[in-house]
């Protein structure tokens, strides 16, 4: 990871509930088979064509992207990319012919030769569907001057999985929903949202412990980018309102306050911090920060960055050495303490 601040090291709108916004566009090059039907040489040609396009001096994106070939990465480096949400676990499982082009703050990236030839992706902190959509749309428009995307009047942009036909656009909000999870109303809410063409699901892997959920659009054909994001935004506001109401009740209870302050004690003092315990504390500390239950402790705009750095592979890269499980838990505790612990002398 470079020194430059990453996109997630800032707080965004409605960040008490909405952690981040991600908009992706699936695209394929005209006249070529989709990735799963391509030979290795053809994948290489696709990558070359895309590299030529992003390096094209006449385009405004020239020099913006650094290319990482997945094959050239160690396992830890590859997993770290997935931990930071730049690629999916599936993308790093089979790495031949795949590459990730990303700009320095990692807010805009292009995954090459995943499910489709290109997955253009823009990420923003908090709720910023307009900003993320505009960034992805601009990148797509610029690239389309150098390469031709497979398109059909009827089916729109053609993708390997027909589920992405049409705009090929998926907008996704990462939401922190400890209030609704505690109230037990999430399954019903998810079912209602599913009926409206949206999917609300639990974060994968370690995220499940942290009360993190993903809200995204499912339908991509027959609905324009603007309408899809407007729908998502209006539903997201409703979820945000419900979550805030649930938090009011939740945080009034001494049990909840106790959990928040215990978690605060752990993150500020622990000497060994296993991932699962960290994720659980993270959720409580984030809730405390968002509801302003404590003063002067961990701030909301530091949450995403600490979360990213505390993930095992990313932490290993940060420390620059392989570690045993308990060395890693110690490194995590020390990282979290230095970010969130009482400042020297002021405690």
């Amino acid at each position: 990871m470079s020194e430059k601040k990453k996109w997630f090291e800032y707080a965004g709108d409605d960040s008490d509930v909405i952690v981040s916004t991600r908009v992706s566009l699936s695209r394929n090059l005209k006249g070529r088979p989709f990735v799963w039907r391509m030979r290795a040489e053809e994948r290489e040609e696709v990558l070359e064509e895309i590299l030529a396009a992003v390096g094209n001096e006449r385009l405004s994106v020239a020099g913006l992207f650094a290319c990482t070939r997945m094959e050239s990465l160690t396992k830890t480096q590859a997993v770290s990319l997935a931990e930071r949400g730049l690629v999916t676990p599936e993308f790093i499982a089979k790495r031949e012919g795949k590459a990730l082009l990303s700009c320095e703050d990692e807010s805009v990236s292009i995954a090459v030769n995943g499910n489709d030839h290109l997955l253009l992706c823009a990420m923003r902190p908090g709720l910023d569907l307009d900003g993320a959509s505009a960034a992805a749309d601009t990148l797509e428009s610029v690239l389309s001057r150098a390469v031709s995307f497979a398109f059909d009047r009827e089916f729109g942009y053609l993708t390997a999985d027909p589920a992405n036909l049409g705009t090929g656009m998926h907008a996704e909000l990462t939401m922190h929903l400890p209030g609704l999870a505690w109230g037990g109303s999430l399954p019903r809410l998810a079912a209602n949202l599913a009926g409206l063409g949206l999917s609300l699901r639990e974060g994968a892997g370690a995220e499940a412990n942290a009360g993190l959920y993903r809200l995204s659009n499912r339908v991509t054909l027959g609905i324009s980018e603007q309408t899809a994001t407007a729908n998502l935004k209006s539903m997201a506001y409703q979820v945000v309102m419900q979550e805030r109401a649930a938090r009011e009740t939740l945080c009034a209870s001494v049990e909840c306050q106790d959990r928040v302050f215990r978690a605060l004690g752990v993150v500020q003092n622990a000497r060994l911090l296993p991932l699962s315990e960290f994720m659980e504390c993270f959720s409580n500390v984030r809730l405390g920060a968002a509801q302003q239950l404590y003063k002067g402790g961990p701030a909301l705009d530091t949450m995403a960055s600490v979360m990213a750095k505390a993930q095992p592979a990313t932490l290993t890269l940060l420390m620059g050495k392989t570690m045993t499980a308990s060395e890693r838990d110690a490194a995590r505790a020390s990282l979290v303490r230095s970010a969130w612990g009482p400042k020297e002398g002021s405690a």
């Binding site: 749309d137 027909p162 036909l165 049409g166 705009t167 063409g197 054909l221 027959g222 980018e225």
Partner: peptide
């Protein structure tokens, strides 16, 4: 299959 998935078979939105 496309109809079942999207409820529509007519693209709306951005074009090349």
């Amino acid at each position: 299959a496309v109809q079942r998935m999207h409820g529509s078979v007519r693209h709306q939105g951005k074009t090349p």
